[in-house]
Design a protein around this nucleic acid. Structure first.
Lengths: 201, 201
DNA sequence: GCAGCTCTTGCGTAGTCGGCAAGTTAGGGC
DNA sequence: GCCCTAACTTGCCGACTACGCAAGAGCTGC
């Protein structure tokens, strides 16, 4: 417990900065927020902000990046004998269900999506976050199916398919707000994994 | 001929800037290149550079963005009665074959990939380019399969799967340089479309 | 309590982005 | 052929950002 105290404070600071950046951006638009504003809202100096994040965009997206990385963990937590497609569907949709964002404000996910949709300057950072998550998921799948380098290749392609389908679902949902996001994602991922049911090799 | 002259000069300038940015970045690393260097190499002022591109990164990635958008065009050029999976495989791999980069230097694609792999600061811009291409491909697929809004949803999910698989193949190829990039991409896209052969609905 | 961290902060610098207003050039109407 | 208009380029300028550096503050472990 002793070693962690410092780390926890560090994480708290990062968390505060990220949330402050997000709140300010939703309120005033990304262009209406300056780094000093964010730093002040989190109670640190601008220099400290830059110690944690390279840009406003990175700060805003950071919680989403952490969130997205969770897919791989979810997948590793599924039973190993479950069909891989089902594992993937459940792993992805778990992040869109209630209670997925633990220490984040309620309704954060929805507001975050809206912000990203409204601010093209966030797209790049957001895509980087999802790409990292896809990479992690690919590794997790590779662990499950094995098969050396060619297995890893297959695994990462599957991860790419799933991530791509998820992205498409989110984009579609952001445009036409019909139904819940979780349902759209579930449908999309089901469609993506339809071709590999049964044959993991 | 009259209306276009101006536009052509404009395009030439943009092209020169993009290529200069790319060459300088490969030579000195992204961090070793300043905007004035690029502008000077293209024979314009720094202010003009900023009229064309919002950042060095955007300039470097711009040819790749144009290139990637071509997938949708390729797809539209395929016979309408061809199985959709086959159309997709051919559309994507066509961009990796010889002669794909018309007015770009030979070996550009390979060097571009290497640069992006080496410079994380380019990832965001690059992903934005591929996302735009994915969007365009989704629209093209939607035109083919029809089916109103739910058809469009399916179409964009398919585009996401294909784009994700392609991305995974490129990443894999960048790490372990085995075989040709075109082959890796072909294999990956084949895998992605395996589940939807025959059933476009 | 003390020695050694790490984190924070202020300062200074180099560089980027974009508005604005002049100067320049191409294209079209007559 | 001539001029007018619109588009493009450019220099100047200010606001902002990113980051190196060094001093200071607060934990942590002994």
């Amino acid at each position: 417990m002793s070693v962690r105290r410092r780390d926890r404070q560090r994480d708290d600071t990062r968390h505060d900065l990220a949330l402050a950046a997000f709140e300010l951006a939703t309120r005033h638009g990304l262009g209406g927020v300056r780094v000093p504003d964010i730093a002040a809202a989190a109670g640190v100096s601008t220099r400290t902000f830059n110690n944690y994040f390279a840009s406003r965009e990175a700060a805003i997206v950071w919680p989403a990046a952490c969130h997205a990385i969770g897919v791989a963990d979810q997948f590793r937590g599924r039973p190993a004998d479950e069909p891989i497609g089902e594992s993937l569907v459940e792993s992805v949709t778990a992040l869109y269900g209630p209670g997925a964002g633990q220490q984040l404000p309620p309704d954060w996910l929805r507001r975050f999506r809206a912000l990203v949709a409204a601010e093209p300057a966030l797209h790049g950072e957001y895509l980087k976050a999802t790409a990292a998550a896809q990479e992690a998921l690919g590794d997790a799948i590779a662990e499950r199916i094995g098969g050396g380098q060619s297995g890893a290749f297959r695994a990462h392609v599957i991860a790419g398919m799933v991530a791509g389908a998820e992205r498409a679902a989110v984009m579609h949902w952001m445009r036409h707000n019909d139904g819940t996001l979780a349902d759209a994602v579930r449908t999309a991922v089901r469609q993506a994994v339809a071709g590999l049911e049964g044959g993991t090799r």
